[in-house]
Amino acid sequence: MIKKLDLHNLSLVKELFELQTASYLVEAKLIDFFEIPPLKETMDELKECGESFFGFFEREKLAGALSYTIDGEELTICRMVVHPNHFRKGIAQRLLDEVENNKKDFRVFKVSTGKDNTPAKSLYLKNGYKLVGDLEVVPGLFISNFEKRRS
């Protein structure tokens, strides 16, 4: 089941914090970079991040989450996290479908991921996102930027 997350619910924020830590540690290993901002974030910073969240629940337990921000007609996906115990179950796909279906009036969707994060890049490409380019954000670390435009 997918539902909007209320970051005023402290037990839910704790669950989200633990989920994102587990998920981003896998990405950190994939891209060989352990300074990913969410890995350095505190629970209070997560709670106050200003992003909107959808969560995927399996048996009342948070198994995945997606966050986004909105700027005009653009929606930017900020976080896509799935607990490693739930990889390869289609959770990221369902979260992506949820945000796109819930936000039909947006013309531009943007997302970024580590250049070496092949599973994430494959997800976005198979869903119609186009690679806009790679950006070196710190020496030796490249981020791939994707965009999906609707008429």
Rank of each mutant, 00 (worst) to 15 (best):
T76E: 07
C49M: 00
N101F: 10
L135V: 14
E45R: 12
R79A: 05
T42P: 10
L141D: 08
E73H: 08
T113H: 01
T113W: 01
G72F: 04
A92I: 03
F106C: 08
K121E: 12
L141N: 12
T42C: 08
D44Y: 04
L141S: 11
E74Q: 10
K103N: 11
V108P: 10
L95Y: 00
I143K: 04
S52Q: 09
E35W: 14
G90A: 05
N117G: 00
L62P: 01
A120M: 08
V111T: 08
E136K: 14
L46H: 09
R79V: 01
R88N: 06
D71T: 04
E58L: 06
L75H: 03
P37R: 00
K47Y: 03
V111S: 09
E41P: 11
T76L: 07
A92H: 04
F33K: 12
G55A: 01
L46M: 15
L39C: 05
L131M: 09
G72A: 07
P119A: 06
Y68T: 06
N101C: 10
D105M: 12
F142P: 10
G72H: 05
L131T: 10
L131Y: 09
L96V: 05
F56V: 01
R94C: 01
P139T: 06
N85K: 15
F109S: 06
L131S: 08
H86N: 11
L95H: 00
A92S: 13
V111Y: 00
V81W: 00
G72P: 04
E74V: 07
L141Y: 07
P119F: 06
A65F: 02
K89N: 04
F53A: 08
D71A: 13
I91F: 02
Q93T: 11
E45Y: 08
L135N: 15
F54H: 01
F56I: 01
E51K: 12
R107S: 12
E45W: 04
L95K: 04
K110E: 08
D44M: 15
D97G: 14
E41H: 03
E136L: 14
S144R: 12
K61P: 15
F34L: 14
I143W: 05
R107P: 11
D97E: 14
V99C: 11
N127L: 04
E35V: 04
R79G: 01
